[in-house]
């Protein structure tokens, strides 16, 4: 079946969008978080057909939770728990009822002004989760490790970066990687208490921010980062600190990327230039012997023609801020105050 794209205007610029996972049936509900408006909120939506006999499903809002500031990230800690960061520096852990989606989200823990410039507000720019542990970063350059089960701050790395941090990723249980406004990436080993990065390197020499970081689901030493300039860098952390490949991808900043949960050969990216792409990474992961006779499964990109990139949607006139995929269904949220549902995606 061909790809089917369907847009719905929601009167909010969407900064984050996430499917709510279902165990035994097709996913129908999703979260959105808005940004850059007078009043922002986290909404829960469901897809439903307005008339029973129709095939087309439209999103309908089930509940709304107003937040102060922009929603900067939404991630799951468990199936029905999300952790949300906002631009006023707050981090909240919220729970959605598994059976009654329309009941308002319940706040389990909240960390007010977790990131701050003293009394001045400071944006909590991103967060990542791994098994109930949460790492948050902010414009203050601090890193906080939170325990989502007990609701406490396990550790704070003050002044982890002298510039503002913009992206973070847990690539192992005890190791995180952060990227700042200049594309300066640092690896932190949380077992070591000296507040010094274990390694650091630059995304590219162009002083552009690292907007998102992602690690490969099956090969955790492979790390990808998207840049504000639209390029995509790939590192093999076992080899060296220079990107294995730096691809000039989108015309403007990469906003979010995900590997398809069912097929790690598929990478999905979206950008400020209004593009949403699907990459076939197969060509890049052919097994081969590296120069030092080590088996690398991640090939440097000599033959760039081997990249298979598809555009999933005609280019929008406004930035696409976020995407999320679940099997053959991809949703994305954009600055034209619309969410798009892409169906029949082959993975």
């Amino acid at each position: 079946m061909p790809l089917e794209v369907q847009g719905t205007f929601v009167s909010q610029k969407i900064n984050k969008i996430r499917w709510i996972p279902e165990e035994y049936e097709e996913t129908k509900c999703f979260f959105t978080g808005s940004w850059d408006d007078e009043f922002n909120s986290i909404k829960v939506w469901t897809l439903e057909s307005p008339h029973e006999d129709e095939e087309i499903e439209y999103p309908r809002a089930l509940s709304e939770l107003p937040v102060d500031g922009d929603v900067t990230e939404i991630k799951f800690t468990e199936k029905n728990k999300i952790v949300v960061s906002t631009s006023n520096g707050d981090v909240r852990l919220l729970e959605i009822s598994a059976y009654e989606m329309q009941t308002p989200l319940r706040e389990i823990y909240s960390w007010k002004k977790l990131h701050n410039f003293g009394i001045d507000p400071c944006s909590c720019t991103s967060l990542d989760t791994i098994d109930g542990d949460i790492v948050t970063i902010g414009e203050d350059g601090n890193i906080n490790i939170l325990n989502g089960r007990r609701g406490e701050i396990t550790r704070t790395i003050n002044g982890a970066d002298s510039c503002s941090l913009h992206s973070v990723c847990f690539f192992k249980h005890s190791e995180i990687i952060t990227g700042n406004v200049r594309g300066h990436m640092k690896i932190w080993d949380l077992r070591i208490n000296n507040n010094k990065p274990a390694a650091s390197f630059l995304l590219a020499g162009d002083e552009m921010a690292a907007t998102c970081i992602l690690n490969h689901p099956t090969q955790p030493h492979i790390v990808l980062a998207g840049s504000e300039s639209g390029s995509l860098a790939i590192w093999d952390l076992r080899v060296n600190s220079f990107p294995t490949s730096l691809l000039n991808a989108h015309a403007a900043g990469v906003t979010e990327m995900h590997f398809h949960p069912e097929n790690p050969q598929k990478l999905l990216t979206c950008s400020v230039s209004g593009e949403i792409w699907d990459w076939n990474m197969e060509a890049m992961t052919k097994s081969s012997k590296g120069p030092d006779n080590q088996i690398t499964t991640w090939m440097p990109l000599e033959d760039k023609n081997a990249m298979m990139v598809n555009s999933l949607m005609p280019t929008l006139h406004k930035p696409i801020n976020t995407l999320h995929c679940d099997k053959g269904k991809i949703i994305c949220g954009a600055d034209n105050e619309a969410v798009y549902l892409i169906k029949n995606f082959k993975y």
């Binding site: 500031g69 900067t72 720019t125 414009e139 406004v181 504000e228 900043g253 400020v272």
Partner: peptide
């Protein structure tokens, strides 16, 4: 412009 994210968007 309250946040750097917004600043980056305005710049873009």
């Amino acid at each position: 412009v309250q946040t750097e994210a917004k600043a980056m968007r305005v710049v873009a």
